[in-house]
Design a protein around this nucleic acid. Structure first.
Length: 866
RNA sequence: GGGCGUGUAGAUCAGCGGAAGAUCGCUGCUUUCGCAAAGCAGAGGCCGUGGGUUCAAAUCCCACCACGUCCA
């Protein structure tokens, strides 16, 4: 960034001068004669016990102080957004206040909810998790206070000078810091393909805020100006609070109430982990994260497990539920929603604690076994083993060392070694959202084509209409208006016809709804002429029923299982629909029945389903962020779908206008698609009836085949299985008896039985009609007698098989006998002294192989041939 | 989303190319007034699923499924 990027009217007016820090050499702006910047290490930490501010704040009072300051200066105050950004798929958590407005607002797609605005946004940053409590200032969760302004050609709100002026006024005249102590350090900022100048605000060795001016789009080496210039600021609420109190660490300032209420065993480094992680988990849980072994859920689980390990350091002093109760009591004063699901919270904690205990017991046992295995290899367990133990068993090195009988030093860089094992995947850019595969194939219409007017929201029942053709490219057609619903929000496309030509797919692309004809070359009215549209009505009706049923089911699940239920995904097709929800264990049959009863009761009550547009901020104000069940919806206005007194969601789909139209809802099955997530398959309306009819037909068929009434099918199957098992047993016993008898016959027949070594050995050599398994059973029978030697030949589809076994492997090794036979025969094989097997071609040579083996046996026993 | 680990008797696991094992539990018998215990005998296995390699696969290779775990 060029130095002139930092020049502004405020700096000039107030006599700020640009200079290089005498210590770090970096450029900063300040008043007075400062020679070094005000950040660590150039300026040491110097506010503990000596705050630069006039008064002392806690989190609550500073937040209020900040927000009302900016309100006073023309900003609109916004409520916090969820810490889980369901409106984008490139990040798991909100990590800065600007995330709330990306990508739709920052890209200019929709206007900001207010402009300028101010907010205090809870943010998650898990990178510092190891440092919590250790450094005295790290947290995994903090609130980023911010004031944002979005400047466009139409509306200039404010830019660098006013932004810095507001910041400076807040820190100096409002809070009381000496103006010459504050430094504004230059820092080029870049992220997500955008960049611009930025200053970090330093005071007494602490960076307390960052002011970013997003201004350019990177296009290779070139910088292009952004159409929307964004003032993006971030003020650390916890840091300001810390500074205002001047406490030794940030934790005393941020968690005074919780720290006070903890048992005295837990002092600072450990207590900080408890406070920070519990508070963080509470936000995650409230905003819809359920512990799991992947993605966001894994981090929620990690927090809980770190808490449990910390609690274990003082056994009996404090339990997880008690800790969480304390944290809820304190934190919910400012965020009442955190106390909204005490039952669910208690249940998830119980399940997680149980799972952790199990994992630990299993892990410890496996560590002991691993040590034994390693010992057999003739070495002692080493650090690599510990890394492996942690990585794949989840047993931390300190626990593993307890289990091992030999001492292993855990190196400082242990966790770095673990990280090294995992190859880094490149972080995803901004291209991810909104670009589904269907859209990628769509041709780009010229921008002169007017946006499509859509009617399916207002009127989902009209199936015939006329529209003027505005544009066409191959199979793709844009009309001035349409009733066709394009694929979106988990609801699949409408089908139908345009002027008699079948329409196979409809997609939304930017401002247009594009209809795809099945035949690209089909004749259609000229551009400018009108075309008759006809929508496949039964299909649309089924999709509407499935979509409304999804909302009913979602509402019923939340009512039955608790407010932690969030929609994690959904699909509405014609054959059926599915809904994925966040939940920590599989649904029980009784829970499913209860949900079904509730859903169908709401259907019978024939409640109105209202859909209407509402401004985003008003809707959020009225219904909260639970609106975003289906992910974020673009637009200044949200389309609200409201099932009276039951469920409210922001949704762009086509819906029944009364619940009775859904007809009937049946859950067809559930599965745990991953830890912390349950999928429900269901059907509604006509399709539900069809499915039940299919099931009935299947039952009827089963009933007929079993010759039992439907009600007796389970009993009939039980009997059948019992009989099958008995039959199996009998067959096994019979074949065992057969083999026994065969062995008896062979060994008493002079043609196949040969006494050697003066009768101490009995060789049974014979060709039988048995496969490999049969030969083995027979050989076992022969060798179970003292001195028994089996030289058996049999066959399967692929050829002849030899199976030799010996009860006296020392004198009469089966492998050696087989070797002789193979030589005479030309087959392949091998084995050990007590058993050997070979295979080769069928034919007379098999007999000579047996003869050769028998001759060899005679030699070995010292018996002369007859 | 990616890496690693684990799937063998009801349970916990061993075996890791040559004829499926141990411990606990279960059943029966002996002993006892009865219980516990001991002794003896026995039942119980598609060695996760599907391919492949091999004379021979629980064992080696590939794919999939399930569970666990770590990292983004």
């Amino acid at each position: 960034m060029e130095p002139r990027e930092y020049e502004n009217a405020f700096f000039t007016r107030q006599g700020f001068r640009r200079r290089a820090c005498k210590k770090c050499g970096e450029a900063f702006w300040a008043q007075g004669e400062r020679e070094v910047c005000s950040e660590t290490p150039c300026t040491p930490y110097s506010f503990q016990g000596n705050s630069p501010f006039r008064r002392s704040f806690d989190l609550s009072s500073f937040r209020e102080f900040y927000l009302s300051f900016f309100e006073k200066h023309g900003h609109t105050r916004l409520r916090r957004y969820p810490v889980v950004p369901r409106w984008r798929n490139d990040v798991m958590f909100v990590q800065a206040s600007i995330y709330d407005f990306q990508p739709w607002v920052t890209s200019g797609a929709i206007p900001p909810p207010a402009n300028p605005l101010t907010i205090s946004q809870p943010c998650m940053r898990f990178t510092d998790i190891e440092n919590v409590g250790v450094t005295g200032r790290h947290l995994t969760m903090f609130e980023m206070m911010a004031h944002h302004a979005f400047n466009s050609a139409e509306k200039e709100v404010y830019w660098k000078d006013r932004c810095i002026e507001l910041c400076h006024e807040l820190v100096t005249s409002e809070l009381g810091a000496a103006p010459e102590e504050v430094s504004y350090k230059e820092e080029a900022w870049e992220g997500g393909g955008n960049l611009g100048p930025s200053v970090s605000v330093g005071l007494r060795g602490l960076e307390i805020a960052t002011l970013v001016f997003m201004q350019y789009i990177r296009d290779g080496e070139q910088l292009k100006p952004m159409p929307l210039r964004v003032v993006d600021t971030g003020y650390g609420l916890e840091r300001f609070t810390h500074m205002s109190q001047g406490t030794p660490t940030i934790y005393e300032a941020v968690f005074p109430g919780i720290l006070h209420d903890l048992p005295s065993e837990f002092t600072l480094p450990e207590a900080a982990v408890l406070c920070d992680h519990a508070k963080n988990f509470l936000f995650l849980f409230t905003d819809g994260i359920v512990p799991s072994n992947v993605r966001e859920g894994y981090l929620a689980r990690l927090l809980l497990r770190r808490i449990l390990r910390t609690l274990d350091k003082h056994p009996g002093a404090l339990t997880l539920p008690r800790l969480m109760e304390t944290v809820v009591r304190h934190v919910s004063k400012d965020f009442p929603e955190l106390a909204g699901d005490p039952k669910g919270l208690a249940e998830v904690l119980r399940v997680e604690e149980e799972r952790f205990a199990e994992a630990l017991t299993r892990g410890r046992a496996q560590v002991r076994r691993l040590e034994e295995r390693v010992r057999k290899e003739g070495r002692a367990p080493n650090v690599d083993d510990l890394v492996m133990i942690y990585d794949s068993l989840g047993v931390t090195p300190d626990v593993a060392v307890e289990e091992l009988s030999t001492k292993v030093e855990v190196p400082q860089d242990f966790f770095a070694r673990v990280t090294e094992l995992h190859t880094r995947t490149p972080t995803q850019g901004w291209g991810g959202y909104g670009a589904d595969s269907a859209e990628a194939k769509v041709p780009e219409p010229p921008t002169s084509v007017p946006a499509t007017v859509v009617h399916y929201h207002r009127d989902p029942y009209t199936h015939q209409f006329t529209g003027r053709v505005l544009w066409r490219s191959g199979p793709w057609v844009i009309l001035d208006q349409t009733y066709f619903y394009p694929t979106g929000g988990g609801q699949i496309t409408d089908r139908g016809e345009l002027s008699g030509v079948p329409v196979e797919e409809v997609v939304r692309h930017g401002p247009w709804v594009m209809h795809k004809l099945t035949t690209p070359e089909a004749p259609l009215p000229e551009v400018g002429a009108t075309s008759e549209g006809r929508i496949d009505a039964p299909r649309r009706r089924q999709l509407m029923q499935h979509h409304t049923a999804t909302h009913l089911l979602n509402g019923a699940l939340r009512q039955t299982l608790g407010p932690h239920i969030w929609q994690a995904g959904a699909y509405k097709g014609t054959e059926g629909a599915r809904l994925d929800i966040t939940h920590w264990q599989a649904l029980t049959p009784e829970e499913i029945r209860e949900v079904e009863r509730l859903v169908n009761r709401v259907v019978r009550e024939d409640r109105p389903v209202k859909s209407y547009f509402e401004t985003r901020s008003k809707a959020e104000e009225r219904f909260g962020f639970g609106l975003y069940q289906g992910g974020a919806v673009p637009g200044k206005e949200l389309r609200i779908v409201e099932v009276e007194n039951f469920d409210v969601e922001a949704c762009g789909g086509t819906h029944c206008t009364r619940t009775a139209e859904v007809g009937f809802v049946k859950v067809l099955g559930t599965e745990r698609i991953q830890d912390g997530m349950v999928r429900l398959h269901f059907a509604a309306g006509e399709r539900a009836l069809e499915v039940l009819q299919e099931h009935e037909a299947i039952l009827a068929e089963a009933s007929q085949k079993l010759a039992a009434p439907v009600a007796d099918i389970p009993k009939a199957v039980d009997r059948l299985l019992e009989r099958l098992k008995e039959g199996h047993k009998e067959a096994k016993a019979a074949s065992k008896a057969d083999v026994k008898e065969l062995a008896q016959r062979l060994s008493s027949s002079p043609a196949s039985s040969h006494a050697l070594a003066g009768g101490k050995l009995q060789v049974v050599a014979a060709k039988v009609e048995l496969d490999r398994e049969g030969l083995q059973a027979l050989a076992r029978e022969v060798t179970s007698r003292p001195g028994g030697i089996a030289l058996l030949a049999g066959e399967d589809e692929r050829g002849a098989i030899l199976f030799f076994a010996s009860s006296d492997p020392k004198q009469m090794p089966a492998r050696d006998l087989l070797a002789v036979a193979l030589e005479a025969w030309g087959g392949k094989g091998g084995g050990n002294p007590s058993a050997a097997t070979g295979s080769g071609p069928k034919g007379p040579k098999v007999q000579s192989a047996l003869d050769a083996a028998l001759a060899r046996a005679r030699e070995l026993s010292g018996s002369a041939p007859p």
